[in-house]
Amino acid sequence: MSLQPPRDKRTSLADAVALVGDGAIVALGGGLSARLPMAMVRELVRQGRRGLHLVGSAHSIDVDMLVAAGAVRRCEESYVGFEQDLGLAPAYRRAAEEGSIEVAESCCVSLLAQLRAAEMGVPFLPVRGVRGSDIAGLHPEYATITCPFTGETLIAVPALRPDVALLHAPSGDRYGNLHLEQPYVLDERFASASRTVIATVDELVSTEEVMASGITIPGHLVAATVPAPFGAHPASCYPRYAYDRGHLREYVSAAQSGPDDLGKYLTTYVYGSEESYQAAVGAERLAALTGWSRSTAAWQELFA
């Protein structure tokens, strides 16, 4: 595989997400409440994708919605949930308890080593922990090795090359150069380790602008880029918008309640387009989220 050529990478959301095949290993960018690639997640649901193997560190509504929609075969994240705020991820939890998804819970450190091995073009890298933890039992693909230099026992984790990485950035240019704000999470590692990188951007900007902001992920790693305002919603994409706690609560409640209420959520928000999604969320709500920086009180109010 070679690096991506310098051409116009702009495409539609539908065409970009069509690059994710059934059964693909999909790396989800962002994490928890920040820069989740939600426009692409919704499009995967619209396109009825099946059998996906998801990889990532700590995630929430992105994984849960894909599981709820029946798109997932295997989950390999270090955490899936809504933290102390909204608790366990309802669809993920139910699927794990029913046995309808393969649970391959991982560890941030192991995953990082696996991605780095792929980036470095070597078959494995060692990690210092895992032995003694039952996480080891979820990963028969790991191996126990003896260090040839120190004689210590370590766990070798195999290189991981996701088929597709789905990343959301606040801005980027037509060549796929992306500017990210912290938390970068694993996006930079995914961009180098994955075979195909698709990015949505809140705003398409000129090359001069993205250079001035700072190119975090270069266009030679990116295959397709899609302008998608509020493309991370209900996750945050600072400095543009904070996360939408009320919407997350609405989703969790629907997913917890059962297939009928979940179906209503998907019909209201997902099955149309990104334009109809934003209309359903409401301009007033989106304005409140973009207004987080008006004052500390305004910011704090979003989390009350």
């Binding site: 560190s57 700590a58 994240e77 270090s78 955490y79 899936v80 949930g81 933290e83 366990l88 991820a89 993920y92 939890r93 794990a96 308890e97 046995g99 649970v103 819970e105 560890c107 941030c108 450190v109 192991s110 990690v127 210092r128 922990g129 895992v130 003694g132 933890s133 039952d134 996480i135 080891a136 039992g137 979820l138």
Partner: peptide, 26 residues
Amino acid sequence: VTAIGPVSRPKVKLGGGGGGCNLSAT
């Protein structure tokens, strides 16, 4: 922080350990 009951068919699937199984070693 993984599962109450057997992990192949948990009574409660918990959120997951994050970096714990390596961090707790070092």
